[in-house]
Nucleic acid binder design. Structure first.
Lengths: 359, 359
DNA sequence: CTGAAAGCGCTTACAG
DNA sequence: CTGAAAGCGCTTACAG
């Protein structure tokens, strides 16, 4: 594209005209200097008042505040960032801005950031390290004050290296270092809860749809499944486990494979809700009713999961809270404080896709 | 919060030290001046090369390009924005960053913007004019080069006024003016397609779950429903229409109301997929099978709608494409060109929630 | 408590 | 084709 022309809001780098023409068109936005002139003080003073960076006599303060209001002055963030070295902006590497799972987390991030005067800059990583790296590079170039790395595939090493330059909090893995903090839900505990719920209902043949093997959450969920089996005295049966990919289609295919190879089960724990949804469709197609013939539990509690047919029993970990906590921790780090890394506990949400095993 | 301390990436407003200490810690990022020095040219020349803003002798160009690569130089956007009046940033007012419906559109926007060197700044309007106004004010303060107003409730007047300051494209309504363009899917046509599909299957008693009355899309979808009825010689029956809110819960309640008042219908067209999902649950609870007892059609084709039980027949309007087109149109406006405002046509996606009326 | 001045890292008329 | 210089709109040491 050819370079775009200037906008009406532009502030061209042009020398001031020797003398302003009478009735020059009012510029689109006020500058600090205009406020200072209107209030009869120096720009420094206006800056100090805006930033609360020094005590100022109350009369001046009043005059300045009135001028700000009258001119509807809003500091230019670019100028501010350039002068102060702070951009009041936080980069967020999100894997897919439209993910039903992560979306809520972005909202949590946005809410907390906004409440503290920061603005999020979202960039999609598309679940591949190259795009993630590109996003980080862009963020560095834009001089963000910090970065939230919401899940993703980039290696721990690369992340740690980046964090030395820009304070970073990463989600979905456990990792720490200079400028780096992490936040991780207790996926194993959630999976344990889910599986024990099924066992408590009398089920002994509990199948499991696993997530991608290179995903930490997925692995921990499998660990929780196995731990719960052990705790309830059920022998692990590899024939009841099928690999999935966290998508509906993967859940559907996994159930088909399970059924095709003659696996017999009365309950099914899926490593996430999307797979559970696909699994339910596969079961329905095979004439198996949920929960009459097989009880199904998911994981995540997606927004839509209380309206599936039947409404899905699942494990909730508030992704909104995850986003909020990540943002909070990051701002704490930016502020030079120790980040609080606690997350709300995971909990089981019992709905209508599970029932007691009929004798 | 107390003002955060400077970051490692900061560029503090401090006088240069009288003499640099030997072995000063290498600054986190290179500046244009460093590149210029390394390449033995003036900063102006480096700037011109980067911006392709003037012809430069190829030897210099080579030297500069090498210096840029070696120092991994990336222009500081804040400085750039301040000097040029262009921020290379576009504000996007999104209603809910985690909406299953709009998410895909944000991806479309992001993709097109990124491909053209722009970065999106997302801000949630939460479906209320006050937050939307706040977002616009923030965008103006941040000196974005343009704004995409993705649906929303703000009045046409206010939007038109804003667009005089910053080029704006709005979706979900028809509106034009200085600096303002709009993009609107043909909702009426989509609804007409859906209803005619049902009529074509032999259904005569086709109920309708309407969306919120203050929503343009919702109103157009109702208009399409009525037009299709007229075209196929079916009398409109107000008793077969129930008000909804575009959410699952609203769809569920609307069906309950319909059934409670004894409405009889063999088909149901819902103004969006989320309501269709709630409607299906309500029908299931009343012992009505989809599609055996009632055929159901939705609108939007959400990512999950091919995995509902049964997979939902619906109307697709590519929201991704909508986002892309909006971004394209905006960049065209920013570039002083006439925006292209065409959108891909809506289409009916027939799946398993509809079937021919049994005699 | 307050102002004058330098500086942040760029872009771009201006003058060769 | 190229450089020196001014300017964008702020912040902040420095010096009262």
């Amino acid at each position: 594209m050819s370079p775009p022309p200037r906008l009406r809001t532009a502030t061209p780098a042009r020398r001031k005209p020797a003398r302003a023409s009478r009735r020059a068109p009012r510029p689109a936005v006020a500058t600090l200097e205009m406020v200072a002139r209107a209030a009869g003080v120096s720009p420094s003073t206006v800056s100090r008042i805006i930033n609360g960076t020094a005590a100022v006599s109350s009369e001046r303060r009043l005059a300045v505040e009135r001028a700000i209001a009258r001119l509807d002055f809003r500091p230019n963030p670019a100028a501010r960032g350039l002068a102060s070295g702070r951009s009041m902006t936080v980069g967020v590497v999100t894997q897919a801005i439209d993910s039903p799972y992560y979306g809520e987390g972005l909202r949590g991030i946005e809410a907390h950031l906004q409440a503290n005067g920061y603005a999020p800059l979202f960039m999609s990583g598309h679940w591949n390290a190259r795009d993630e790296e590109r996003a980080l590079a862009q963020f560095a170039a834009r001089r963000v004050d910090g970065v939230i790395f919401f899940a993703g595939r980039l290696g721990d090493k690369a992340l740690a290296a980046f964090a030395r330059l820009v304070p970073t909090v990463v989600t979905g893995r456990r990792l720490a270092g200079p400028g780096l903090a992490s936040l991780k839900a207790d996926d194993e505990e959630g999976a344990r809860l889910a599986t024990r719920h099924l066992a408590g209902l009398g089920h002994r043949r509990i199948a499991f749809l696993a997530g991608p093997g290179d995903n930490v959450d997925a692995r921990e969920r499998e660990a929780g499944y196995r731990r719960a089996l052990a705790e309830t005295g059920i022998a692990f049966d590899a024939g009841l486990v099928a690999a999935g990919d966290f998508h509906e289609s993967g859940g559907l295919q996994a159930v088909n494979r399970l059924l095709d190879r003659g696996a017999r089960f009365t309950a099914l724990f899926c490593a996430n809700d999307q797979m559970a949804q696909g699994a339910c469709l596969a079961l329905a197609r095979r004439g198996l009713r949920v929960p009459a013939d097989v009880s199904v539990v998911g994981f995540d509690d997606l927004p839509g999961s209380s309206y599936t047919i039947p409404p899905l029993t699942t494990v909730r970990q508030s992704v909104f809270a995850l986003g909020e906590c990540a943002a909070r921790a990051l701002l704490e780090m930016i502020g030079g404080r120790a980040p609080r890394l606690a997350l709300p506990a995971v909990e089981l949400v019992v709905r209508e896709s599970t029932q007691r095993l009929r004798a």
